[in-house]
Design a binder for these strands. Structure first.
Lengths: 220, 220
DNA sequence: GTCTATACCGCGATAGAC
DNA sequence: GTCTATCGCGGTATAGAC
């Protein structure tokens, strides 16, 4: 409600604010429906500005979608994973931190996972390609891969396939959130998406994965 | 091309065949787009019959969707998991079989996972509720839970939370397929969805999960 | 049981006033 | 920079002939 930098409370004609509002609303809409089923009319309604504004700032629904995709990955995801920080840690500690940050990200930015999944299913990653092929994405993927490789080399992790293992870990972290709305009917009222249960989820994944990758042979 | 039971090659007016053809096409369409973005026109085009037929056999897009959901779960999924068979096996063996069957199912019925995920994200499980609340679904979920509980009781599995663990295992199995279309840009041309790589995926998950749940203490 | 034709409207996108 | 009005396509669903 409080406008920034001393301007009037109800800001009219603040380009940056309007653009951000549209991006926020679009992010939520695309997360629920994906590119194809999302409606610009809904986005406008959630934003509070009119539909025409969407086409003023972004020239098409498709362009708006790409803008959301980029902001979600380079902004939200990279910011909260902070992969460089993990590079210096011992492999086990780095892996645990990675898992906890991944789950915290899914919890704090619930739009992230759904947007990525819709993109994969509906568009076969077509609009995500340039993001994931970017130097930055490749670099981050490399850092995570190297955590596992280092662990194997140092003997604390067993011989495993790093890329498969990363995907499987991501799956264990994400599926809880992705499938939650179905799962609630199987768990019958048991868990919520409250911080305590999510923390329990994080702990279960950490225990499962760390035990799963640890090298049990004391002799090598 | 060969018509069943000695009828003419190009069958006109075979109610069952038409209905099945519509369900098959609808399943593929809903798997890619989910309920909201799926188009009955596309389904009709894939089927070869006209749009009007869809509304003759199923009275609305929504009803067709529910029919697909039920067929996918009670038909495809239950048939290929065969949970009762696992109940008699030792826990470790039962868990490995469950994982391998889950992955085989995802591979052989690529529509299954996507349909369930779209349902969770787009409709919050609204149309899936009656399926997952059914006695049959609850029973199966119970069987799988009991595999883990038995393993803990017998001392071959460590103390873990069965429900969380099931979700995390499912995640490790499914995410590979769900996110494949995005992942291919990270793995840069490496793996395909060919049987060999999928078998490798299955082996990696089995190794990861079995090591992850195994009780390491020899003394109790 | 299958088709053609069409009613109806929701939604992406634009024009143009303010 | 924001709004109102509107165009036109495409998608759900139905009527009715064969």
């Amino acid at each position: 409600m409080v406008a920034k930098a001393g301007k009037a409370a109800k800001q009219v004609r603040d380009a940056e604010a309007t653009k951000t509002a549209i991006l926020d609303a679009a992010e939520a809409e695309f997360a629920q429906y994906g590119l194809n089923a999302a409606k610009t009319e809904e986005i406008a309604a959630k934003t509070g500005v009119t539909k025409a504004m969407i086409y003023y700032y972004f020239k098409s629904k498709e362009d708006l979608y790409v803008a959301v995709l980029e902001r979600v990955f380079f902004g939200r995801y990279m910011d909260s994973i902070q992969p460089e920080e993990l590079e210096q840690l011992p492999p086990e500690e780095a892996l645990e931190k990675l898992i906890r940050r991944q789950i915290a990200t899914d919890f704090n930015y619930p739009n992230l996972g759904p947007i990525q999944i819709h993109e994969a299913l509906q568009n076969q990653g077509k609009y995500y390609q340039h993001v994931l092929s970017s130097d930055r994405a490749q670099q981050v993927f490399g850092i995570v891969t190297r955590i596992l490789e280092r662990g194997i080399a140092e003997g604390c992790f067993r011989k495993l396939h790093p890329q498969h293992t990363i995907v499987n870990i991501m799956g264990a972290c994400n599926f809880y959130f992705t499938a939650y709305e179905n799962m609630k009917y199987l768990w019958q009222g048991a868990p919520l998406l409250n911080p305590e249960t999510v923390e329990q989820h994080a702990q279960e994944v950490v225990d499962l994965i760390l035990a799963g990758v640890r090298n049990q042979q004391t002799s090598k």
